[in-house]
Amino acid sequence: MDSLRTTLSFFVDPLKYLVDVPTVLVEQAADSVSSYRTLKKENERLREEQLIHQTRLLKFAALEKENIRLRALLENSFKLGEQVLVAELLSVNLAPYENIVVVNKGTRFGVHPQQPVLDANGVVGQVFRALPFTSEIMLITDPNHAIPVQVNRNGLLTIAVGSGQLNRLVLPFLPGNADIHPGDLLITSGLGGTFPQGYPVAVVDEFTSEPDKAFATITATPKALLDRNRELMIVWSNSTQVPLISKPTENDPETRTHVDE
């Protein structure tokens, strides 16, 4: 059945690109008329941002090393860094009741279902269906989507369910006395195996517990700019066991045998 869908998608996928054309044109037009000053300002801002991020990364390398050593002591596995593919959103609307978006990368680029999708601010969703030239991505706010999360402050585990609105997640499975406050950051817990651990998902914005109900009513706002970003990152993550005693490799003892692509 999936092969039939793939075959038929060769006929209809061009339409998705066709529908996207006006948006691209408008964007290009806006780009080409933007003034020298705006560009210069943006350039400066980006440079500053890059400097800040670079400095943070310096520390990050050391922290990662330390984390791996600690995890080795605990006989734990550690994620070995992720490979990402930048995909661009196509501005099409498949069905009005579902929060599903379409991006311009498909199985041609090795995209497969259930891959996590991120943007610069947090988790966006997961690949729901991969066709040769496009793939459909279910956002975390889709009513049919649930994502295992933990509170960053204290490690409290729970599940965040989509509400159907682009700016709201619901946490339906926490009791009234749960240790969670407005402003708490929710990160992926890595349970379930779809999403890699430790990416920001949402910020809790409301917590109400009613004495007569078993569960509290908690809502959260997603960190990712779900409706505004055009660039998304599709992630390949691989986690393997870290050896109990970290042994130096033959050629290059103290270096990065473990990280990134």
């Binding site: 209809v12 339409l15 998705k16 066709l18 529908v19 948006t23 501005s91 099409v92 609307n93 498949l94 009005p96 009741y97």
Partner: peptide
């Protein structure tokens, strides 16, 4: 018909999508 299919998935702004 192809044009109709394009209109079918055209992005209507925000809350208007349900009217398509």
């Amino acid at each position: 018909i192809a044009l109709a299919m394009c209109l079918r998935i055209a992005p209507w702004p925000g809350a208007l999508a349900v009217f398509n």
